[in-house]
């Protein structure tokens, strides 16, 4: 029954809610209870924007069972313009075109489904920023 596990994280997975330490201004995604830089315990919540930059990346060719049938797919670490870093898939781009430093934008996507009769987990994946 993982639906409660995903449900309680909807503010983060659906709306990209992050937090900023009131003491030292360090940003966290997901929010934390204790700042790992200054040990502060007071935070303000804010919604991240969708823009970011690829810090590193790879192509998953042998996925775990939950992602069978989807490989190959790219994943990367994205440094969000608003501070925190996150790991997510990089989609809608030829795999060989992904580069460190590439500008991306997060889009709302299906992350995975719990089998054929379980809950669908939604979240954000990165697409190349095109104007």
């Amino acid at each position: 029954m993982p639906s409660a596990r995903s449900w309680r994280a909807y503010p983060q997975t659906y709306r990209l809610e992050a937090s900023r330490c009131s003491g030292c201004q360090k940003t966290f995604f997901p929010p934390r209870q204790v700042c790992n830089a200054c040990s502060g315990r007071e935070f303000e919540t804010f919604r991240m924007g969708y823009g970011g930059t690829v810090v590193t990346h790879t192509v998953i060719r042998t996925p775990g069972d939950q992602f069978q049938g989807e490989a190959p797919f790219a994943v990367g670490i994205i440094a969000m313009d608003d501070g925190p870093k996150m790991t997510t898939q990089i989609v809608d781009v030829p795999l060989e075109e992904i580069r460190i430093g590439m500008k991306v934008k997060l889009e709302f996507r299906r992350m995975y489904a719990e089998g054929h009769d379980g809950v669908i987990e939604y979240g954000h994946k990165a697409v190349p920023l095109r104007e």
Binding site: E70, V91, E107, F108, R110, M111
Partner: peptide
Amino acid sequence: PALDEDTITLSVEAVR
């Protein structure tokens, strides 16, 4: 639509 796109994901982007 890709494997990770459905009516909900497309609609969230449209509403945004």
